[in-house]
């Protein structure tokens, strides 16, 4: 390859490659780490280790690099979510649809986060995960109602029914994330 060709390629890549920073949060056991693994194309595994603190995962999709900050959902890490959400391009909030008992807690955590001044206007994707666990799984409409998502304003907000196990709707998630990317 001639040096000019290389230079040309580099310039093109500069124009087209882009990066996005996404923070993935939600209560423990919601399936955050599993979801990210599935998005990366790994096989589903039923036993995972809880995330202690955070881990960074990178997903590359058509020249878009998505950096995902996978945060731990145990109560003692929740106060630290805000630190990592600050300045992020998008927030993904994962909910375990099969455990409706937890929804009140989910609701209060979610609303507390959305009321933070530092996180104003950051787009939010609520993932209703574990849809494969029928018939108990909460549907998207029920989720919108139970979490009172309509009251959250002044930011992009969507809610998808997803299964990290059956890969249901994962492409929509990716699409949504890619759309948040900005060119570098």
């Amino acid at each position: 390859m001639s040096i000019w060709r290389r230079l040309y390629n580099w310039l093109v890549s500069l124009l087209w490659s882009s990066e996005t920073n996404v923070v993935v949060i939600g209560l423990q056991n919601a399936g955050k780490s599993t979801l990210l693994a599935s998005l990366q194309g790994s096989d589903f595994s039923p036993d995972t280790i809880p995330t202690v603190g955070f881990a960074v995962q990178t997903i590359v999709k058509n020249k878009v690099t998505i950096k995902c900050w996978d945060l731990g959902g145990q109560p003692r890490f929740r106060s630290l979510w805000e630190r990592y959400c600050r300045g992020a391009d998008a927030i993904v909030f994962v909910v375990d649809s099969a455990d409706s008992d937890l929804l009140p807690t989910v609701k209060s955590e979610l609303h507390a986060l959305c009321s933070q001044e530092s996180l104003e206007h950051i787009p939010l994707l609520v993932v209703a995960n574990k849809q494969d666990l029928q018939p108990h799984a909460t549907t998207v409409d029920e989720m919108i109602e139970k979490l009172d998502l309509l009251s959250i304003r002044e930011r992009d907000i969507v809610c998808y029914a997803v299964s990290a196990k059956t890969l249901q709707n994962l492409d929509s998630v990716i699409e949504w994330l890619v759309a948040r990317a900005h060119h570098t």
Binding site: G53, F54, F77
Partner: peptide, 12 residues
Amino acid sequence: DDVIMVTSSIMR
């Protein structure tokens, strides 16, 4: 404070 936060990253 909260240095425990890096545990998962380091574990990897």
